[in-house]
Computed example of a mutant assay.
Amino acid sequence: MYNIIPFIIILVCLAVILSIVIKKLPLLAAFDINSIPEEKESQTRKKIMEERLERKAKVFYGKIKPFVKLVANFLQRKYKSLQEGIVRLEEKYKSKAQKEILVTKEEFQNSEKKMENLLAEGGDLAKKENFEEAEKKYLDILNLDPKNIAAYRGLGEIYFSQRQYEEAIQTFMHILKISKDDVPAFFQLAEIYYKLENFDKALVYSNKALSNSPKNPKYLDLLLNICIVTKNKDLAITTLAKFKEVNPENAKIAEFENKIKEL
């Protein structure tokens, strides 16, 4: 029992201290730190420094203001002079371009004739399977006219003949960049993908070719072969009917009919 007395005394003391603190809390909350002389002095110094800096900035700007104005006027004059120079250059090059166009028109017929000759030579060389020399002829045409579709087509056919299918695909794709609805390019891509056994793409390009030229027997022939390989009997029957309509004397009709029956 005597051991608990000190503990009770400690608790009583803590209760008294806590009571005093609670009573003094309102006074602590109302205490203004700005009432401390040192704090007031610090704030005063800060305000004086800010006002002094502001005055110095105004004085400095007043001194450099004429110089700033002078530089601004100089830059404005330079900008105006530069604009006038650009206008003069535009007029000069416009005049030069017009002269060059006149020269091009005068030389146009000679250039066209030269490209026709190169195209014919390239075709003859390709028929003789002299593909390397034929390729050079087509490249010579493209040096004269970088968008010559006939030259690109000749190159694509050379690559196809040599089974360089990736090069052929790139070439015919480039033709479609120049002319997005080039029907022969669609058909030639369909042929390449058929050779590569990529029948999905072959069907896509075959349909694109036929949508622009629905009665072309060559295009219908390829589509029939794609349908037979992929066992698409319904499309094969529809395509064969069109094939008979446009080319009723074709010897392959009976062969196609037998293959379709086996699907």
Results as ranks from 00 to 15, higher is better:
residue 50 E to L: 07
residue 50 E to Q: 06
residue 50 E to A: 03
residue 51 E to V: 02
residue 53 L to G: 04
residue 53 L to M: 08
residue 55 R to L: 11
residue 55 R to Q: 08
residue 55 R to C: 01
residue 56 K to A: 10
residue 58 K to C: 09
residue 58 K to W: 03
residue 59 V to Y: 05
residue 62 G to L: 05
residue 64 I to C: 03
residue 65 K to V: 05
residue 67 F to R: 04
residue 69 K to M: 14
residue 69 K to L: 15
residue 71 V to S: 06
residue 72 A to L: 14
residue 75 L to W: 10
residue 77 R to F: 15
residue 77 R to Y: 15
residue 78 K to T: 15
residue 78 K to G: 13
residue 78 K to W: 10
residue 80 K to C: 12
residue 81 S to K: 14
residue 85 G to L: 07
residue 85 G to I: 07
residue 86 I to D: 05
residue 87 V to R: 06
residue 89 L to H: 08
residue 89 L to E: 11
residue 91 E to P: 00
residue 91 E to Q: 09
residue 92 K to P: 07
residue 92 K to C: 07
residue 93 Y to A: 02
residue 94 K to E: 10
residue 96 K to R: 15
residue 96 K to P: 03
residue 98 Q to R: 14
residue 98 Q to L: 13
residue 99 K to L: 06
residue 99 K to H: 07
residue 101 I to A: 07
residue 101 I to K: 09
residue 103 V to G: 05
residue 104 T to S: 14
residue 104 T to I: 13
residue 105 K to A: 06
residue 110 N to Y: 11
residue 110 N to G: 10
residue 111 S to K: 14
residue 111 S to V: 11
residue 112 E to C: 08
residue 113 K to W: 12
residue 116 E to F: 13
residue 116 E to H: 12
residue 116 E to D: 14
residue 117 N to G: 12
residue 118 L to M: 12
residue 119 L to E: 04
residue 121 E to I: 11
residue 121 E to R: 14
residue 121 E to G: 01
residue 122 G to W: 00
residue 123 G to A: 10
residue 124 D to M: 09
residue 124 D to Q: 11
residue 124 D to R: 10
residue 128 K to N: 12
residue 131 F to T: 03
residue 132 E to T: 08
residue 132 E to D: 12
residue 132 E to V: 04
residue 136 K to I: 04
residue 137 K to N: 04
residue 139 L to H: 04
residue 140 D to M: 08
residue 140 D to W: 09
residue 141 I to F: 07
residue 141 I to C: 01
residue 142 L to N: 02
residue 142 L to I: 09
residue 144 L to K: 07
residue 144 L to H: 12
residue 144 L to E: 15
residue 147 K to L: 10
residue 147 K to Y: 12
residue 147 K to W: 07
residue 148 N to Q: 11
residue 148 N to E: 13
residue 151 A to G: 05
residue 155 L to G: 00
residue 155 L to H: 00
residue 155 L to I: 11
residue 156 G to S: 05
residue 159 Y to D: 00
residue 159 Y to M: 04
residue 161 S to D: 13
residue 163 R to D: 07
residue 163 R to F: 03
residue 164 Q to W: 02
residue 165 Y to E: 01
residue 167 E to S: 11
residue 167 E to A: 04
residue 168 A to L: 02
residue 170 Q to D: 14
residue 171 T to I: 05
residue 172 F to A: 01
residue 172 F to C: 01
residue 174 H to W: 06
residue 175 I to M: 05
residue 176 L to P: 00
residue 176 L to M: 09
residue 176 L to Y: 10
residue 177 K to N: 15
residue 178 I to V: 15
